Amino acid sequence: MADALSLWLDQRRALNAASENTIDAYRHDVSGYLGFMGQHFGGPMGVAMMARVSQRDVRSWMAHARGRGLSARSLARALSAVKNFTRWMAEREGFDATHVLSARTPKFQKKLPRPLSEDAAQAMLDTVELQSERPWVAARDLAVVTLLYGCGLRVSEALGLTGDDMPLQDVLRITGKGGKERIVPVLPIARHAVKDYLRQVPFKAGAKEPIFRGIRGGPLSPRLVQKVMQAARMQLGLPATATPHAMRHSFATHLLSAGGDLRAIQELLGHSSLSTTQTYTAVDTARLMEVYDKAHPRA
């Protein structure tokens, strides 16, 4: 069964271009399920035992996982991985997996993105560059955060820019999650911020080397971007949700508020599914209701 799991994970990695974090999550979820079922049935988990799993057995595993503190959201993710692995095994070994595949996914409240307001996003841009006494580091921090907010990049995408991408043009070709490519317009303010940083940075990046560097010249760590934004948000009195990824959420939400097309925003963000992008419409509606409630308080 361990060999089968490894083979399945290799196929997920190759066919779906899954990230290593996703592969690790799959491995953890399915291994936990197989381990539970082995104890549940009182023997090592094999193909014959997999074919015996009933809906009651699946519910026992889910109850066990919840009892150990697993959230409904995490359990839903784990069940999805288990179903995918079981389906693959059933097709490979020729057994009926209906009982597992028909198990109900636990319901959970989807978390809405937590963007910053337009004023707060601008204040963040004005404040991150004040967190370092080194002018080139200040310019670096401003350039990275401007790319997150101005282009909707993920932190990993911004830090993945190399000498080959320089100088920035009007558009930027980004390879995002799952190897999905997208074309992102680059605002003049973002081009200027990156150009100003490159003019000051003491380390020169080769064609394939990252342009954003740490103090000692190595690639800039995402953790350092988090730390500088943490310092800036504390200075501004913003909530803990004002993270680097919140700048990407802000990019999408502010575009939508300004009348941006949902499909276009999906392409700019690199979302595979429109349903992922549609969460921003819920954010926009929630904000509208908040304004309405303040303007028309209930008696």
Rank of each mutant, 00 (worst) to 15 (best):
S6N: 04
R12L: 14
A14P: 00
A18N: 04
S19Y: 02
T22P: 08
A25M: 04
Y26R: 06
S31G: 11
G32W: 05
L34D: 04
M37C: 11
G38H: 08
G46D: 15
M50C: 13
A51Q: 08
V53T: 10
Q55M: 07
V58G: 04
V58H: 03
M62W: 01
M62Q: 07
M62D: 00
A65C: 09
G67H: 03
R68K: 04
G69F: 06
S74D: 00
A76P: 02
S80M: 00
F85Q: 03
T86K: 05
T86A: 07
T86R: 03
R87L: 12
R87Y: 05
M89I: 00
A90E: 07
E93K: 10
F95R: 13
A97T: 06
A97N: 07
A97W: 06
S102T: 10
R104H: 05
Q109L: 12
K111M: 11
P113T: 12
L116F: 10
S117L: 13
S117H: 12
E118Y: 15
D119W: 15
A123C: 08
D126Q: 12
V128L: 04
L130M: 15
Q131D: 02
W136L: 08
W136H: 10
L147C: 09
G150E: 03
G150R: 04
G152R: 09
L153G: 06
V155Y: 03
V155E: 02
E157R: 06
E157G: 11
E157H: 11
G160E: 01
G160A: 06
L161A: 01
L161Y: 01
M166S: 03
L168Y: 09
L168K: 06
Q169S: 07
D170G: 10
T175F: 14
T175P: 05
G176P: 06
G176I: 12
G178T: 10
G179A: 09
H192S: 12
K195D: 14
Y197F: 13
Y197V: 06
Q200D: 07
P202W: 10
P202L: 12
A207Q: 15
K208M: 14
K208R: 15
I211Q: 15
F212T: 11
R213Y: 15
G214M: 11
I215W: 06
R216M: 15
R216F: 14
P219W: 07
P219D: 08
S221V: 09
S221H: 13
P222D: 11
L224I: 14
L224C: 11
A232E: 14
M234K: 14
L236A: 14
L236P: 15
L238R: 13
P239A: 15
P239T: 14
A240M: 14
A242H: 14
A242V: 14
T243A: 08
H245S: 10
M247S: 07
M247Q: 08
A252M: 08
H254P: 07
L255E: 04
L255W: 11
L255V: 07
A258Q: 02
G259K: 02
G259Y: 00
G260D: 02
A264P: 07
I265T: 04
I265G: 03
Q266F: 01
L269N: 02
L269W: 03
L269K: 03
G270C: 09
H271Y: 07
S272C: 06
S275G: 01
Q278G: 04
Y280V: 06
Y280T: 08
T281M: 00
V283F: 08
V283D: 05
D284M: 02
T285S: 10
D293G: 05
A295E: 01
P297V: 01
R298W: 02
